[in-house]
């Protein structure tokens, strides 16, 4: 079971973990990636390719399902304006096996960071910015 969300708004990691917990599997793992910036950054702008973002996240999740025995995967990636300290990414996994859940969650995070078509611009108070 795979649930992919690509959205501008914030999300509640606790609510997502609770959704996974409702499946009553041994392991529920979650990762929340937050925006960390230098002091001079006012906010971050996350650019994305809407169609490819969803399809690439889906492909990554399906690869994880093929590698491990998982009951469910939830992936949430934000785009648009995000303030420092806010969440940008959530990865959640429910599985019957602890080791598999942990391994899958770590693998999913690594794959999303290097494959999902999202780009980050750190925007300063004067409106100038720098892409990462």
């Amino acid at each position: 079971m795979i649930d992919i969300r690509v959205q501008a708004g914030d999300f509640d990691p606790g609510r997502q973990l609770a959704r996974l917990g409702e499946l009553k599997k041994t392991a529920v793992t979650g990762f929340a990636g937050q925006i960390e910036t230098d002091e001079d950054v006012e906010h971050v702008w996350v650019d994305h390719h809407a169609g490819l973002a969803r399809s690439e996240l889906q492909a990554i999740a399906e690869e994880a399902e093929a590698r491990w025995s998982l009951a469910a995967i939830i992936l949430i990636h934000r785009h648009g304006r995000i303030a420092p300290g806010e969440r940008a990414l959530f990865v959640g996994v429910a599985a019957p096996d602890v080791d598999q859940a942990l391994a899958a969650c770590a693998w999913l995070v690594a794959q999303i960071r290097t494959r999902a078509p999202f780009w980050r611009k750190d925007v300063l108070a004067d409106g100038t910015g720098r892409w990462r």
């Binding site: 990636g33 996350v46 940008a88 494959r115 980050r120 990462r132």
Partner: peptide, 10 residues
Amino acid sequence: VALFPPVGVL
């Protein structure tokens, strides 16, 4: 055709 630089937010 869409052209992309390397990806990454975190």
